[in-house]
């Protein structure tokens, strides 16, 4: 999930989610960056709306114990 988390950092800080920025974060964490995974993530995020993900998740977070395992 590190790559997703990196994307979320950029999104949170309103920075551009591109290969270079994700790679910088991953490497700053001391992880060897896998270019293919980064490229795949960037391509995937072009079609997936993070804001939408946040909205749909917020509901789940507010939801009940029932949701918890």
């Amino acid at each position: 999930m590190e790559y997703i988390y990196a994307a979320m950092i950029l999104h949170s800080a309103e920075k551009d989610i591109n290969e270079e920025n994700v790679k910088s974060i991953i490497e700053a964490a001391g992880i060897e960056a896998d270019d293919a995974r980064i490229k795949a993530l960037i391509a995937a995020l072009e079609d997936v709306d993070i804001d939408e993900a946040m909205e749909t998740t917020a509901m789940a977070a507010a939801a009940p114990a029932a949701a918890a395992p």
Binding site: I4, Y5, A43, A44, D47, A61
Partner: peptide, 23 residues
């Protein structure tokens, strides 16, 4: 097989990340 992007999985991963961060 490596090139196929699973959008549902990406969405699920994002939601998982967001949920985990909030939690």
């Amino acid at each position: 097989d490596l090139l196929a992007i699973d959008e549902e999985q990406t969405m699920a991963d994002l939601q998982g990340a967001i949920r985990s961060a909030f939690n």
